[in-house]
Nucleic acid binder design. Structure first.
Lengths: 219, 219
DNA sequence: TTATTTTGTTAGTATAATCTAACTTGTTAG
DNA sequence: CTAACAAGTTAGATTATACTAACAAAATAA
């Protein structure tokens, strides 16, 4: 059996290793707000259980089994977020905390039912892909808005990482998934970007924001 | 803050004290399958926190605050069961285990939303009353089927206590909440009762069953 | 390349929730 | 009424998850 606490460590490790393939004790410590020695001993424990590759003073990696476990927890999280938005009428910035708890429910039938009622969705309300029931995540090749060039036209596909504050900011600007943006200017000094979309002809987005917006180029 | 474990003790105590007003360490121990010394120290802890009246060698009682806490957990449980049946299409004998976990979710909005989507129900799928948001349970004055007399016509209103096995048995007999039963005979030897309902003219129910069926007399 | 800082590890402590063994109190059957 | 049994309690051990303090290794800066 795998405890709720262990699940949280696996999920953190999965998210941290998503890009680089590895993560450090220090990074997990900061993300979970848990002191390093605690993280260290938990990593040893998870290594015993076969979920993590642990070697003294070396970066951490998930084993294949660890990746699968983590992806299945993330699947439950994202299915839940989708359900809360689509079937219960929550806003996309209200669902994270609730999903953070429901992801630990042990009941295959419950999540199967959700999946079914939602029509087997492949992305969550923030555009992040939902791993399948084997823990396989179909990775889209979206690019971050801050890597685009002047003149590009792109569609907003996902927000990553997405804080509640960021989502509320996007709401206030009427920026939703699926919105098509045209890039008009990039300020070299602070890398802020001027875009137009819908009826808005010149919105300025800071680099802090554009670094979290995943887009699919149209032209 | 009140832990998930503490919530389970409060709920057990609430249910055990529902009829008699008090319960013993031994009863809680058996119900939760936790040894007596563990229960004992937890009762002291809950007494410290103001949820339980504890005195050595005396029966346990909930304080008013304890009753309210417990009723609010039961509210979450029953709302969840109702939601699972009404909105997600689960059968009434499948929902207990899931609700047992979801009742510990901390999110007033989540349960408020459920309540709203269900149209503010007052009973759960097993006919048990749902406490209101102040922890007040409207007690119906239903009677158990085994206290009825020959010739009585009654409506099945609730099943208490309801095990998965019992619910499956009732399903197999097509006995649902709201079914109207006519009592034709009571066997003095084993107190089994012969009833008719729907197109069934003579079904025999054992006293083990009739002692769990709460009914409202029609005549 | 050495000194300093950051990161990782070990050792020991704390708290929550469980257990077993042993003892005490209360209840019940002769 | 007392002996035996059941229920309640106390004491001490165990496991999971956290912490702090102190030390070791690795990375970085001078």
């Amino acid at each position: 059996m795998i405890s709720q606490t262990e699940e949280n460590y696996l999920k953190a490790l999965y998210n941290l290793t998503y890009l680089k393939g590895e993560a450090t004790v220090n990074e997990i410590s900061k993300r979970l707000d848990i002191k390093m020695p605690t993280v260290n001993s938990m990593m040893k424990k998870l290594s015993e259980k076969g979920f993590v590759h642990y070697e003294s003073y070396k970066p951490l990696k998930l084993t294949e089994e660890g990746k699968k476990e983590a992806a299945l927890i993330i699947r439950k999280h994202r299915l839940t977020e989708m359900y809360l938005v689509e079937k219960m009428g929550f806003a996309w910035d209200e669902v994270h905390q609730i999903a953070e708890q429901i992801e630990h429910i042990h009941s295959p039938e419950f999540f199967t039912k959700m999946d079914q009622l939602l029509g087997y969705p492949t992305v969550d309300p923030h555009g992040s892909p939902i791993p399948d029931h084997n823990g396989v995540m179909r990775s889209e090749n979206y690019i971050f808005l801050d890597t685009c060039k002047i003149g590009n036209v792109v569609t907003l596909m996902a927000v990553q990482p997405s804080s509640k504050e960021l989502l509320q900011y996007l709401n206030s600007k009427n920026l939703e998934l699926g919105t098509t943006l045209t890039i008009h200017a990039i300020e070299p000094f602070d890398r802020s970007i001027t875009v137009s979309y819908d009826s808005r002809s010149a919105e300025v987005l800071s680099s802090k924001v554009t670094a979290t917006l995943l887009v699919r180029p149209i032209s």
